[in-house]
Amino acid sequence: MGVDILPLVTSIVTFYGIYLILALSFNIEYGFAGQPNFGKVFFYSIGAYVAGNFTANMLMRASGVTGVDFCSDLAAEVRFKVAMSKPWLIIALFLLSLLIAAAVGGVFGYLTSYPALRLSGDFLAIVLLAFGEIGRVFARNYTPLVCGVYGLSGVPNPLVWIGDPRMARLAYSAIVLAIAFGMYLLTERLVNSPYGRLLKSIRDDELVSSVMGKVTPRVKGSALIIGSSMAAVAGVLYAFYVQTVVADDFIPIVTFVVVTMVMLGGVANNKGTLLGAMVMTLMDRLTRASFLRILGISVGFDISYVRYIVTGLLIILILMVKPEGLISEKPLKTPAIEEAEKLS
């Protein structure tokens, strides 16, 4: 009956990793390029659909089992067995899923740039929000994708062959965190590169940038492609983590959580995003009745609703105390500026 800290660690690390990627992608799109992509959950879901559908189909093919309904729980069992016996296959499928999803996400990001370049801020946000819901309603009705309302189960953890499922989960969460951190480093590089400065300059004054001879629509579009591609990668990581892909999980609230992370942490600052994602993750995981019990606190009533209220209050409070977010936007960092700072 003792406390078992392992599932909590896996839970926090994986959730943080996945949402960090989403938050970073929103930060690139909104913070640096000024495009509020409120269709975040749509691109996230694309990754999950691609990973689920592709992996499940390939595993079924590899199993040689025919005549089993793709969506059935029996098929899910078959897929787990194949993954158990063929480590290289499931790892290959995982890596391929990441690549394919990133590509597909990028394509959808490119398509999104069409409305994005025509609409201004708040309109774009709502139109993309609508995009996300259209995607969800379509996926829940179109069964071949991820089994519609039933959801597709049997997308095995890529490390399932380790044998000990608890270790497999832990190792997988480490992979998620590593990928998320890699994404962070890449994002940092990107936004401190000439490209990042260009994004910021367009965000702050598009006219000036275009006068300087930059093709601003193309640059803005490219930010959406990068962001969507990242969100799709997060979707793949999510699918292999939950091992079930259900269209109805991809509701607008996911986007709101991501937006809140970025706004709380500080716009156009990746360190802020790290912090904002951490605050929201811990808010979600450490205010639960289960965690309070670990601390020895026993509550006499159901705290689920209270948790949501406290989350809401925290959002309001942080925005009031730190209107710029927890960490505000830093000036540009270039080798030249660094040298200059050293001199002075």
């Binding site: 809140t260 706004m263 716009v267 949501y308 809401g312 925290l314 309001i316």
Partner: peptide, 19 residues
């Protein structure tokens, strides 16, 4: 606060009122 900050705050307000 920018409109998007206000939007985020309104999500917070919504959570408080709804629950």
């Amino acid at each position: 606060a920018t409109p998007l900050h206000l939007l985020t705050a309104s999500i917070g307000v919504g959570l408080v009122l709804r629950y």
